[in-house]
Amino acid sequence: MVKEIERYGIPIVHMATITTISESVGANRIVPTVAIPHPVGNPSLKSEDEKIMRKAMVKRAVDALATEISEVTHFE
């Protein structure tokens, strides 16, 4: 899916837990996430902390879209 969307020339960032799979499906911009059942969240944190963590992670993804890259890049 990632590849086909990017083929239209739209930058896409893949937020995924298993980054090896992410690479093998052809994602160029990758943000590693927390865990499979809750990629963009962490229920073991207090809700305020979880929110801060989540926001930072999504911001990183958005920033990745605005970052010029020439090869597969992990934004950690």
Binding site: M1, V2, I5, I10, P11, I12, V13, H14, M15, A16, T17, I21, S22, T33, I36, P37, P39, V40, V58, A61, V62, L65, A66
Partner: peptide, 10 residues
């Protein structure tokens, strides 16, 4: 005319 996409996977 979308400029960028965030795709999340589990």
């Amino acid at each position: 005319g979308v400029d960028g996409v965030i795709l999340t996977s589990t």
